[in-house]
Simulated assay, not measured.
Amino acid sequence: MQVKIVAGTLFGALMMSGAAFAQGDCSVGVSMYTLGAPYFAAQEVAAREAAEAAGCTVRTADGQNDMVKQIGDVEDMVASGVNVLIINPRDPQGLIPAVNAATAAGVHVVSMDSMLDPSGDYITNVSASNGDNGELVGEWLANETNGEPLKIALLSGSQGNVVGQARRMGVLSGLIDAQLTNFGNANVEIVGQGWGNWSTEGGLSAMEDLLTAHPDINVVLGENDSMVIGAREALRAADRLEGVLLVAAADGQKEAYEMIKNGEYGATGLNDPAAVAELAVEVGLKALNGEEQELTKYTFTEPAVVTQENVDDYYDPESVF
């Protein structure tokens, strides 16, 4: 079975039992494939703080978007004696040998956010449900546009990334299904796909190119908020914001929430980096403590689409992300 967990419920229980981990008993390594986007930076902070709150020593590493470096980071952490490894992997296949070696050395390995191939020897992948979030965003988009023909500029993160693929396909599935259900037809055209490398600057550059080739765009769909925020800047500079609806498959970046509150941005899928990181650390520490857990290779936080109607339930002006 796939396990869906409401963010924060298990983490609270872990903190209540945190005294079980003495400072010398628990050493957590947090291997991030990049800290080059606000989401990943916030996730690293949350993972470190969760492990420290449970009484563990913590080592963290930035893979700098380089798989070879991340492999070296993992090997260094294992050699240093970590007994829990939380990894956000650069590549679903390429990190498997290092992860398998860590598990063979007695390390409890949990993948978070970007997913490892399920053939690997690790406990579980912890993430938001990219497909479910995407479907909710797609349903909202169909209802919001009320059968209008959609010409969508798609902003994707990086080629071959399975998370990005799940996000865009989730949105398109939810959108087309809702259009068919509500209007008896689906009128959706992806006019072009740009690669924004998950960043605001990348989204801006990709949007400039797409807008030049396709001036009739009326929807921008991004695989994260950062790229859509960058796309918005490109649209504003071209005096093309009017009549273009901005949506993201996932993230919930603070700046996006602020624009959603102000009616300047349509919707985003809920992908709280702190909730994902806290849950990943929690799973790893429970494994270290010998606690039984009913987990498969995929453990999901609760999906949601964040819109102007419910953004106040999620917006935190003090959030790192």
Rank of each mutant, 00 (worst) to 15 (best):
Q253W: 11
N262A: 15
P215T: 01
G194E: 00
V188Y: 09
K261R: 15
Q253D: 15
M259T: 08
N185L: 09
L210F: 08
I260D: 10
L246M: 11
V247T: 11
G243T: 07
E223V: 03
S199H: 00
A231V: 01
L210C: 03
A231F: 06
L245K: 14
R232Q: 15
R240Q: 15
N187D: 15
L210N: 10
A234D: 03
A256M: 05
M207V: 02
R240Y: 06
V228D: 12
A231I: 00
A234T: 03
L245Q: 14
V247S: 08
G230W: 06
N262C: 04
G202V: 06
L241P: 00
N262V: 02
G230F: 06
A249N: 10
A238R: 10
A256C: 00
I229F: 12
L246S: 00
M207G: 07
W195T: 09
G196F: 06
L204F: 07
I217N: 06
W198Q: 07
G196M: 01
K261E: 13
N185W: 08
L211H: 10
A248C: 04
A186G: 11
V219N: 09
S199R: 05
L204I: 01
D239S: 13
L241N: 14
L235R: 13
I260S: 01
E223F: 01
A206C: 02
H214K: 00
L211G: 07
S226F: 03
R236N: 14
A186N: 13
E201R: 10
G230Y: 02
R236L: 07
V191C: 11
M259P: 11
N197H: 06
